[in-house]
Structure formats: structure tokens, C-alpha cells
Design a protein around this nucleic acid. Structure first.
Length: 154
DNA sequence: GCCAACGTTGGC
DNA sequence: GCCAACGTTGGC
């Protein structure tokens, strides 16, 4: 099983939204590197739910991958803001997975606090200028964050 | 709101 | 294939 980090702006889609819906297609990713990570995901993989452009930005909770990767249908929809005419059902460019709610952490861990942790110094999200919305998390980083968060079960 | 960092586009 | 211009992301 692998671990990931998924970014979302809480005003666009929050962990509360995911909890209410139970699960959701993680659509709209339009970056090739992030797309490649999505395609590498397997059902049962877990992910941190990270708030970007938030006050404060940071890790809010965790979710779980609950589908295999499949083509992102919003890329085929001219009405969607994620529409990409270069992607077709016959030859799709963009992919997604479904994710389901697992847990809200007892507290949100702010980015500034993540940056203080020696165990997290190489983490993608703590790097300067990082813009990747989907990134891998190592087991060491995963455990360090769940411990920091006071999560139910590591 | 500012701006640094980064990805993409398009002219050549 | 290079690289300047541009658009977007996201911390602050």
C-alpha cells in the first residue's frame, strides 16, 4: 500500500464536503506529474487531505483511494471548467481516482509546523515553491504526521 | 494583494 | 529545440 498527499482549497472542496459525500471523484487534475501519480494509485492506498490557500494551510485529515484510476470525464465535457479538447474517451489524457473519507484529524497541522519536523524536511509539500497537487508520501512521513495529528490509528 | 516559483505555450 | 512571455499556484 502506498501513501499520498492530495491538495484542495477548502473553499473549493473541503474535508467536510468529503465527509458529507462519503466519497468523490478526485477530478480536475491537469498537471502531468500529478496525473502520473494518480495513475499509479491502487484501491486501499491512503492519502493526507491537505488544505492549500487556507488560513492556515496544512493537513486536515486523511482519506482512502477507493477505485482504480480511470479517465477524468470532466476533460470531455465542454461545459466543464476542466474541459480539455485534446483529451478524448478514445485516447484520454487525464485520469482520476475516487477517494473516500476516513478521518478528520483532532487538529489541523499547519504547514509551518510540518516544516519544523526533521522527519518531514524532504517532503514534497514542505519544499519551497512546490505546486504539485498530488504527491507521494513515504511511510516515515506518514507515521510522523499521524503522530503529530494525534490520529486515531497509525 | 503581492510575488516567487513553476508549467505551458508559441515564435523563431 | 530554445527560450521569452504568459498564466497559475500558493505561501505569506
Amino acid at each position: 500500500m502506498a501513501y499520498w498527499l492530495l491538495k484542495s482549497e477548502p473553499e473549493t472542496f473541503s474535508l467536510d464536503d468529503l465527509e458529507r459525500l462519503g466519497k468523490t471523484p478526485w477530478d480536475g487534475v491537469r498537471n502531468y506529474q500529478a496525473r502520473n501519480y494518480l495513475r499509479a494509485m491502487k484501491p486501499g492506498d491512503q492519502a493526507l487531505f491537505y488544505y492549500s490557500n487556507a488560513e492556515p494551510s496544512g493537513v486536515a485529515g486523511r482519506c482512502r483511494v477507493c477505485s482504480k484510476p480511470y479517465p477524468d470525464p470532466t476533460a470531455f465535457d465542454p461545459e466543464s471548467k476542466y474541459y480539455d479538447p485534446k483529451s478524448s474517451p478514445e485516447n484520454p489524457t487525464w485520469f482520476l481516482v475516487d477517494v473516500e473519507f476516513v478521518e478528520r484529524f483532532p487538529r489541523l497541522i499547519p504547514l509551518a509546523e510540518l516544516k519544523e519536523q526533521k522527519a518531514l524536511k524532504d517532503m514534497v509539500v514542505t519544499r519551497k515553491g512546490n505546486r504539485l497537487s498530488v504527491s507521494p508520501v513515504t511511510l516515515k512521513e506518514w507515521r510522523a504526521i499521524l503522530k503529530l495529528a494525534g490520529a486515531e490509528r497509525v
